[in-house]
């Protein structure tokens, strides 16, 4: 219930109009959206039950390793119902394969469509989507953990919530199936991070400071 209540309203993209180059415009718009999504994500994380009981160092570590996974749950969730094969980054930023390819994001497109198809086939509920997002953050396997016991409690609390929810729906296999989707989510997020790091290294687009900082933690 708490996760449903604290789920932020979807952001809208601010269409960049500083260039006539369509692909560059797409990238600039996408990176601006991503940076604002990150700001919202950090505020959201603080409201997950148990997160604020972690040390500041562990809060930082989890966000630094799990931010892209958590954000991609949202993209895959929004893209489930999309007509055709679009990726819905925002209600007003829907990219098809050709647009992604032109922007140098063909790899990301393919990975995200795979993830979206998986969730669509599972017919993910809103409760499952918000819990999966929190689980992705809690389970992000940050390499240095300050207080493993608190982290374990945080993870157990989310796992228990998911189990209780599925038990209430008499779905005994759902929890396991959802957790089994985590490797694909991790893999997709890794490919997304690589795509944005590539854009940064090639200096294709100027990245906002927070996005850069979070990518830097992944480099």
């Amino acid at each position: 219930s708490q996760l449903l209540l604290t789920e932020p309203a979807p952001l809208a993209a601010n269409q960049d109009d500083s260039t006539n180059d369509g692909s560059l415009r797409t990238l600039l718009t996408l990176c601006d959206l991503l940076n604002r999504e990150l700001l919202v994500l950090i505020g959201w994380a603080k409201q997950i039950p148990g997160f604020s009981g972690l040390s500041l160092v562990d809060q930082m570590s989890l966000l630094q390793s799990g931010w892209m996974e958590a954000l991609l749950v949202g993209v895959a969730w929004r893209s489930q119902g999309a007509a055709g094969e679009e990726l819905v980054f925002a209600g007003n930023l829907r990219l098809d394969e050709a647009q992604c390819r032109a922007a140098g994001l063909a790899d990301l497109y393919e990975a995200l469509r795979h993830l979206t198809a998986k969730y669509k086939a599972m017919n993910l509920s809103p409760e499952e989507a918000v819990t999966l997002k929190a689980v992705a953050l809690a389970n992000s396997d940050a390499d240095q953990v300050d207080c493993p016991d608190s982290l374990q409690r945080f993870q157990d609390g989310l796992h228990e919530a998911l189990q209780e929810y599925e038990a209430s729906r008499r779905e005994q296999h759902r929890t396991g199936r959802l957790l089994m989707s985590l490797p694909l989510l991790r893999q997709t997020a890794d490919r997304a991070v690589q795509a944005f790091l590539r854009l940064h290294r090639r200096r294709c687009v100027p990245l906002h400071k927070l996005l850069l900082e979070m990518l830097d933690a992944k480099a």
């Binding site: 505020g43 500041l56 930082m60 966000l63 630094q64 400071k209 927070l210 900082e213």
Partner: peptide, 15 residues
């Protein structure tokens, strides 16, 4: 931590 100062600041903000 110095390298990740925006994240650090955002987490320390009360809201």
């Amino acid at each position: 931590k110095e390298k990740h100062k925006i994240l650090h600041q955002l987490l320390q903000n009360s809201t």
